[in-house]
Nucleic acid binder design. Structure first.
Length: 606
DNA sequence: GCCGTTTTCGGCCCGACTGTTTTCAGTCG
């Protein structure tokens, strides 16, 4: 089962939002937001803690510890229910619209009775919104485009959220099946998914279907059959925030692939459809291949079958004329009988993988196991919730050969970073070196790229860091030409070795900055500046197709967690899936290299 | 409501931007 931490963090964050709407004390609101981050980022499962231990979580004091304890036991706490009673859940969903915060959400609810996005759009269309104080024509337009952004991803959930849920369900169903796994776009590692497909092999589907509809996640049973059963998870405003995200507030949503659908929160798995299909063990491979997709990939593969006088379906590979079964047991057999190497699921998008499989030219894809270190992480010196020691201990447990701490730099004013703090951290890091004999410790920083492309701190300070990541954290709306110049200049900075989350997008919340991507990729390649693949579940930045473009131009990449808490070190998993979708091999990924080669990359004259 | 090499009160994440203002409120990173 998934940890209680994410669920409870969602409740605390929801309570903070409701407090913000009802005019609560702003420092109290901040406390709940911080507590939500502390709980979500805490390494230990809340379910195993008593109230005394809960108080040891950062930013959790006596009052919140009591509520957390109650929430673990009962799923909620009275003060939350009290506020839920005052504000309809739909009003919270309004806050997913960019530039629409608690004050404006409450205003449209109180003044116009608007409690969902549909009603808000209607009010924009008929001009009602303009009557409200503080709502002018510009606000109207901002809300209109914001609704488009949110709608674009409606009904889809982030890959990380879906993976957690799918793995948890597979774990519970597996004892009843010969084989059980998730398939579909989730297995292909897409950044968001519209539903979850679970496949099981069993002689008797009865017990599996019964267990499936009895899952606590099953709010509604949509279809109940012998071979296929579909459920829908409950809509719940609670998890309206990123599970272990770095900031409370807006909810990430979904991607470009927009589908019409309900307006439920998407970072939560609320309102998500889950299908379970049960097949005989003998056809496992054919069924898994079929239900993994993509549709386009399967069309291409079936085309090959037809040319060979065969036909392929979820039941197996057959002779076209005699209907004689040839193979169906494993995916490998299916692909091989068609003259193909087995195609990794992350490549199955009909983007050249079938031809590559036929010519034995598939890339040896990068894997999580191939990662030797993490080059973008934070601590509680800035906006992380774990100490340096805690992060290092967790990194060592992962078996990393090297690890970089890259806390924020002074120009991100809210983090109150100073040179003194950075230098003190560097000393502390030096003291800790002896404690981790197998892991090289790098002292880095995450710089801010100013609109003109310059970064924090003078050259002599930058020169003393082992590693500088540079990222865009402000001025997201400059024209493309200026943004392009900005990033190229950052690449040209001899002290900047990695560009962090290069496009700055937040899935479903913020569009990428406008860039001439080929120009930036060429600058990165020419200057030997690595581009990051950030594993934050709502970032995944660079994204899959951009990685491929950049790789074609000879760019080197860094697969980074950008962890702000111990559990978030796992975010490299999502970045790695994304890197696979960009066809990357370990040799193209900086942090798959041995330490000596990384050091050479970081220190070579530029 | 949390927190304390300022220890039980008085601070707390600061500054910029934007739209609707006539001096500021809301939102964001």
């Amino acid at each position: 089962m998934a940890r209680a931490n994410e669920r409870v963090a969602g409740l605390l964050a929801e309570y903070a939002e409701l407090l913000a709407m009802t005019g609560g004390d702003r420092f109290k609101i901040r406390s709940y937001e911080k507590a939500a981050r502390g709980v979500g980022g805490y390494a230990t499962d809340l379910a195993t803690l008593d109230e005394t231990d809960i108080r040891k979580i950062p930013n959790v004091g006596a009052s919140i510890a009591g509520k957390v304890h109650q929430a673990v036991q009962t799923g909620t706490f009275p003060q939350l229910e009290e506020l839920r009673g005052q504000i309809p859940a739909g009003v919270l969903t309004l806050m997913r619209i960019p530039n629409l915060g608690p004050a404006k959400a409450l205003a449209v609810y109180r003044e116009l009775g608007i409690a969902d996005i549909d009603a808000l759009l209607a009010a924009v269309e008929n001009g009602d919104l303009r009557q409200l104080k503080g709502f002018g024509p510009r606000t109207e337009q901002v809300i209109r485009t914001g609704i488009e952004l949110v709608r674009g991803g409606a009904g889809r959930v982030l890959m990380a959220t879906a993976l957690d849920l799918a793995e948890s369900i597979v774990e519970r169903l597996a004892p009843l099946a010969d084989r059980c796994t998730y398939a579909g776009s989730l297995r292909r590692g897409r950044e968001t998914v519209g539903d979850i497909d679970i496949l099981a092999a069993a002689a008797d589907s009865g017990p599996l279907m019964a267990a499936f509809v009895a899952l606590p996640e099953a709010d509604t049973v949509l279809v109940r059959g012998e071979t296929k059963t579909s459920i829908r998870t409950a809509l719940h405003p609670a998890a309206a925030l990123p599970a272990a995200g770095t900031g409370a507030g807006k909810q990430p949503d979904a991607d470009h692939a927009g589908a019409a659908g309900d307006s439920a929160g998407s970072t939560s798995a609320g309102g998500l459809q889950i299908d379970l299909r049960v097949v005989p063990q003998e056809v496992w491979g054919a069924a898994l291949q079929y239900f993994t997709g993509s549709r386009e990939h399967n069309v291409r593969v079936r085309e090959l079958a037809v040319h060979a006088g065969l036909k392929l379906s979820e039941y197996g590979l057959f002779h076209a004329e005699t209907d004689e079964l040839i193979v169906a047991g494993t995916e490998q057999e299916v692909y091989e009988r068609l003259g193909l190497r087995w195609v990794p699921p992350t490549l199955r998008e009909d983007l050249g993988e079938v031809a590559a499989a036929r010519n034995d030219e598939l890339p040896e894809l990068v894997t999580v196991d191939a990662l030797r270190g993490d080059l973008h992480t934070h601590t509680n010196l800035t906006d992380g919730v774990a100490t340096l020691d805690e992060m290092l201990t967790a990194a060592a447990e992962r078996g990393y050969d090297y690890y970089a701490v890259t806390d924020h730099a002074p120009e991100l004013f809210m983090q109150r970073m100073t040179l003194e703090k950075a230098l003190a951290q560097r000393e502390r890091l030096a003291e800790l070196r002896g404690r981790y004999p197998g892991m090289r410790l790098l002292h880095g920083t995450e710089l801010n790229i100013a609109p003109d492309g310059s970064v924090d701190w003078p050259e002599d300070v930058l020169a003393e860091f082992d590693l500088c990541v540079a990222s865009v954290h402000s001025h997201f709306t400059l024209p493309a030409a200026e943004q392009t110049r900005r990033l190229i200049r950052a690449c040209e900075n001899p002290y900047v070795q990695i560009i962090g989350h290069p496009t700055g997008r937040l899935i479903g919340r913020r569009e990428p900055i406008e860039l001439d991507l080929p120009a930036v990729f060429e600058a990165a390649a020419a200057t030997g500046t690595a581009l990051e693949i950030n594993g934050g579940p709502d970032r995944l930045d660079l994204r899959d197709e951009h990685i491929r473009w950049a790789a074609e131009r000879g760019v080197t990449f860094a697969i980074s967690s950008d962890a702000h808490a111990v559990p978030q070190l796992d975010f490299v998993r999502y970045a790695t899936l994304t890197a696979q979708r960009g066809w990357l091999t370990p040799d193209q990924v900086l942090n798959c290299w041995p330490y000596e080669r990384v050091l050479e990359f970081l220190t070579r004259p530029r």
